Computed example of a mutant assay.
Amino acid sequence: MRDHARAADGASDGAGLPTGAVARRLGVSPTTIRSWERRYGIGPAGRRPGHHRRWSPADIAVLEAMCRLTARGVPPAEAARAVLAAGPPARPPAPAAGGPGGSRALHVGSVRPECRGLARAAVRLDSPEVARILQDAVAALGTVEAWTEVMLPALRAVGRKWASDGEQYVEVEHLLSWHVSTALRTAAVRPTALRAVPPVLLAAMPAEQHTLPLDAVAAGLTERTLPFRMLGAAVPPRALLDAVRRTGPGAVMLWSQSPQTSEPELVRQVVRTAWGARGSRSHAIVLATGPGWHRFDPPEGAAGPRTLLGALDLLERTVTA
């Protein structure tokens, strides 16, 4: 009889997901979910006394709505009233066997609410919510601040989790990176009346594959109505020097993510590169930007801004002088 009762209880408890699995799926801690249940009544609709919590698809959909609202800065109590008043969504998601990326949510530290919401949405592979958060952040903060305060901390958290958990978090990193790149490039190429000034040339060093910061600067230049030419990742020296001569830029920004990809001699070559008719030759202001340069003094003749916002301000002053 006892075995039969335990089997019956197990069958009853098997409908839905336990709190830990739901927390992994949503990218929040189990403590947060239990707090929402205790304080605001956001709990499993079919829970019976003496049994473990099991969250149905409809219950999980309510929690997802709660996560979205709190990520947008809505106070938890107000968010709870809103989701309880609305009732469960008409098409709740099907529960998954477990969440991506292991047993813990992303640790993003002390960041803006938008960043926490972005990390949670990325963990649960919620593409529409990731896109919405990024779009709203760019509109509210501008691309460079959105990159620095919302996108970059979330990407770093994914990278740390990937490094510690192996391949389990690759899908989260890929999804988030794609959406970040899409948001930045969409902002960079939107139709804008640009000022009639020399363009800024943006390029990564020959061995550098990381270009999302360059995308953020390109979008920032568009916001300031400044023209640019994007060469992207791993630009060979000859191609870079040829592009400088062909475009006659007002400034050149060279990105290096790590000391291994910084090449001071190439920067000096860009500084010396000139164009135009003899007697009226021109040179570009060169910015050596990115963490790869932080261990060194800027190469002779180049500027070394420490932040993307500082680089953007210097680029604007340079090309509009």
Results as ranks from 00 to 15, higher is better:
L214T: 05
S12L: 11
E223W: 00
P44S: 08
A234P: 07
P236M: 05
G290L: 00
R132P: 00
P88L: 04
R160Y: 15
A302M: 01
R317L: 04
R268F: 11
A82V: 10
P198Y: 10
A8V: 04
S56K: 02
E263P: 05
R245Q: 10
R24N: 10
P93Y: 03
A90G: 02
D215K: 00
W147I: 05
A288L: 03
G304M: 07
P259W: 04
P213G: 09
Q269E: 06
P95D: 06
H107D: 15
G250S: 01
T148L: 13
V170R: 10
A61Y: 01
H283M: 00
L315A: 12
G101P: 06
R317P: 08
V111W: 05
D215N: 11
D242A: 14
L254T: 04
A284P: 03
R224K: 08
V158E: 15
G99A: 00
V319K: 05
A140W: 03
T182K: 12
P93H: 01
T148S: 15
L214Y: 03
A23M: 06
D126S: 06
D313E: 13
S164N: 06
A277R: 08
Q168D: 13
D13E: 14
G109A: 09
V144D: 14
D59N: 04
S127A: 11
D13Q: 13
R2E: 14
R238P: 03
T70F: 04
A277T: 08
Q209G: 15
D297E: 12
H174L: 12
R72N: 12
E149V: 11
T31H: 11
A288V: 02
S262L: 01
S262F: 03
S103Y: 08
V22F: 04
R72V: 02
R39Y: 07
P18E: 09
G248H: 07
E145R: 14
V170L: 14
T31A: 10
E300Q: 07
Q269D: 14
E208D: 09
G102P: 03
V189A: 08
A251Y: 00
Q209Y: 12
W162T: 06
A65Y: 06
L17H: 09
R34H: 06
A45D: 11
T143G: 12
R272A: 15
R68I: 10
T19E: 08
D165V: 13
A97K: 07
A321G: 08
Y169D: 14
L231G: 01
L134A: 09
A96E: 14
L26E: 02
R34I: 01
G292R: 00
S103E: 14
G20H: 02
P291I: 06
Y40T: 01
A140K: 05
M66A: 09
R6L: 13
K161W: 13
R317C: 10
L152T: 12
G14R: 05
A90L: 13
H294Q: 05
R6V: 15
R116C: 12
Q168R: 10
G250H: 00
S35K: 04
R53C: 02
R2Y: 14
T182N: 14
I42V: 11
Q135E: 15
E171H: 07
E37G: 03
S110A: 13
P198I: 02
I60A: 04
L194Y: 09
H107S: 15
L106D: 12
P305I: 13
C115T: 12
R124C: 12
T320W: 04
A139K: 04
P92Y: 04
H51T: 12
G102K: 01
A188P: 13
G101S: 05
A90C: 01
V270P: 01
L214I: 09
H174T: 11
P93V: 02
G46Q: 02
